[in-house]
Amino acid sequence: MNIGDKIKAVREAKNLSQKEISNMVQMDQSQYSKIENGKTDPTTNTLEKIAKALGIELSELFISDKIFKDINSADKTIMEKIRLIEMLDEKEQASIYNIVDGLVASKRLRNSLSNALSL
């Protein structure tokens, strides 16, 4: 299986379209299609962007085909949200991270109190 085939397999396993991935990596869809079809060899930089958009490590495109058995399409919405957050400026990202940190801290506090009360 060549790189293009692996990219396509991951994309399809995650129920993503070529258009979605090409938009995430800011590439023309026809150029992206050529990569998947093995008609052009992508640069390392392009491969890094594609791997990031697919939510995998770049190295996973070069290892065995085992990766394709482990892909779960359930993480698609989370990855989409992370990509949207990455499009925000630093101040907006910091605000979102502060909200998430606050929610996680609140959850941990509730769990701790619940455990303490059940003793």
Score class of each variant (00 low, 15 high):
G4H: 08
D5Q: 15
I7G: 03
I7D: 01
K8M: 13
R11E: 06
R11A: 07
R11I: 06
R11G: 06
A13W: 01
L16H: 02
L16V: 00
S17K: 06
Q18A: 13
I21A: 08
N23T: 08
M24Q: 11
M24G: 01
M24D: 05
Q29M: 08
Q29G: 06
S30T: 15
Q31V: 09
Y32R: 06
Y32H: 08
S33R: 09
E36W: 00
G38Q: 09
K39D: 09
K39P: 04
T40A: 10
D41Q: 13
D41H: 03
D41K: 13
P42M: 07
P42C: 04
T44N: 12
E48I: 11
K49C: 03
K49Y: 10
K52G: 07
A53P: 05
I56Y: 09
E57G: 03
S59K: 13
F62D: 01
F62W: 05
I63L: 15
S64N: 13
F68C: 04
I71E: 05
N72A: 05
N72I: 09
S73I: 09
K76Q: 11
T77I: 13
T77C: 02
I78D: 02
M79R: 14
M79Q: 14
E80F: 10
K81E: 13
R83F: 08
R83W: 11
L84N: 10
L84H: 02
E86A: 14
M87T: 12
D89G: 10
D89R: 01
K91M: 07
A94Y: 10
A94K: 14
A94T: 10
I96D: 00
I96Q: 00
Y97P: 01
N98L: 13
N98S: 15
V100A: 15
L103R: 12
S106T: 15
K107D: 14
R108M: 11
R108N: 14
R110K: 12
S112G: 06
S114R: 13
A116V: 08
A116P: 00
L117T: 04
L117I: 09
S118R: 12
L119T: 15
